[in-house]
Design a protein around this nucleic acid. Structure first.
Length: 337
DNA sequence: GTTTGTTTAGCGTATT
DNA sequence: AATACGCTAAACAAAC
């Protein structure tokens, strides 16, 4: 894998797959979701290589978005007209690149019903598992959500030294606290390792990260009214992107427009775009109002990107994702490797 | 008309 | 060798 020079890939093709690039773009945005056009923009802004042959790579990128389960499509809200939906990362896709190569994933990410998988083994175990998951989710949400600004789970809370910290100890929470978590696709992690971390160490770093990230927190933050109104029942309610979430993964301010701070926003209802082939028929989710919280709070040491901040990736005002996403089969699924 | 999204297909490469 | 993954191309439909 070519090792690009510092700060720029010049015209060389970046050593990242489209999946990586897309994930970077999504992660760079405070809302952790971007419309396709913004993903394009991010990639072109950051990688000059992709300023040419746009039709070719953009077609490939779209293919990847649709084809790979690690990307979730989130429809726009009705009051936010625009083309296309928003794209987010599947909460459980964090360890796709466990082998440290962003050119080639360890294994293709696919969603599969956790319960189904368990049911394949033992029904009683499945029930026990689901009960435990529900408890852990409650605990994790209670421990983190009450204090964390929206982005704290992505290490952004560390920008201000505060933010999250909610901390550890409970269930899925690691001792390092949620505020230092950086999603594997956060560009700090993706690019920083290029310069900072020898491969093996980077791998362990990646491996230390859990297989997910607190998407639920985002969702809750994005659509607090959904929760407050009882449309979605959740133990936490957080501020929107105006509440400290104005920084992207690069430490750059990210404009959170539209519904960000408190604009009138009717939530679009994200739908499970990629229903798992194995349907949930015959199986009822244990706690529909208690979304799947992956072990996202298993933190990695904070890594600073040597790359200078460039552009605030997103100026879009995404439709805030809905809890229905977490209730969907998508959220009840697990990464299957 | 353009953009977005889905799907299928083929090929090359890496991994097992 | 078989399989998995990534990339590219293309066709098509839907939305804007």
């Amino acid at each position: 894998m070519p090792r690009p020079g510092r700060n720029t890939y010049s015209d060389q093709k970046p050593p990242y797959s489209y999946i990586s690039l897309t994930a970077m773009a999504i992660q760079s945005c405070a809302e952790k979701m971007l419309p396709l056009s913004e993903i394009y923009k991010f990639i072109m802004d950051r990688f000059p290589y992709y300023r040419e042959n746009t039709q070719r790579w953009q077609n490939s990128l779209r293919h990847n978005l649709s084809f790979n389960d690690c990307f979730i499509k989130i429809p726009r809200r009705p009051d936010q007209p625009g083309k296309g939906s928003f794209w987010a990362l599947h909460p459980s896709c964090g360890d796709m690149f466990e082998n440290g190569s962003f050119l080639r994933r360890r294994k293709r990410f696919k969603v599969l019903m956790a319960a189904e998988r368990l049911a394949q083994s033992k029904q009683s175990e499945a029930a026990h598992y689901l009960q435990q998951q529900a408890k852990l989710r409650l605990s994790a949400l209670a421990a983190t959500g009450a204090h964390l600004p929206q982005m704290s789970g992505y290490g952004l809370g560390g920008l201000g030294g505060g933010g999250g910290g909610g901390g550890g100890g409970v269930g899925l929470l690691s001792s390092q606290g949620a505020s230092t978590f950086k999603h594997p696709f956060a560009i700090e992690n993706i690019i920083a390792r290029e310069y900072k971390v020898p491969g093996s160490l980077a791998f362990s770093t990646m491996q230390s990260m859990s297989a997910g990230y607190p998407l639920h927190n985002q969702l809750t933050a994005a659509w607090p009214h959904m929760y407050n109104a009882g449309v979605i029942d959740t133990p936490i309610s957080m501020a929107g992107c105006g509440g400290g979430g104005d920084y992207g993964a690069y430490g750059m301010p990210i404009k959170c427009h539209g519904g960000g701070g408190g604009g009138p926003s009717l939530p679009a209802i994200p739908v499970p775009i990629k229903p798992t082939p194995t349907s949930m028929a015959g199986f009822s989710a244990p706690q529909p109002q208690q979304p799947h919280i992956p072990a996202f709070l298993s933190n990695s040491p904070p890594s600073l990107s040597p790359t200078s901040p460039q552009t605030a990736a997103s100026q879009s005002s995404p439709a805030t994702p809905s809890e229905s996403l977490t209730n969907s089969s998508t959220m009840r699924s697990v990464a299957v490797h």
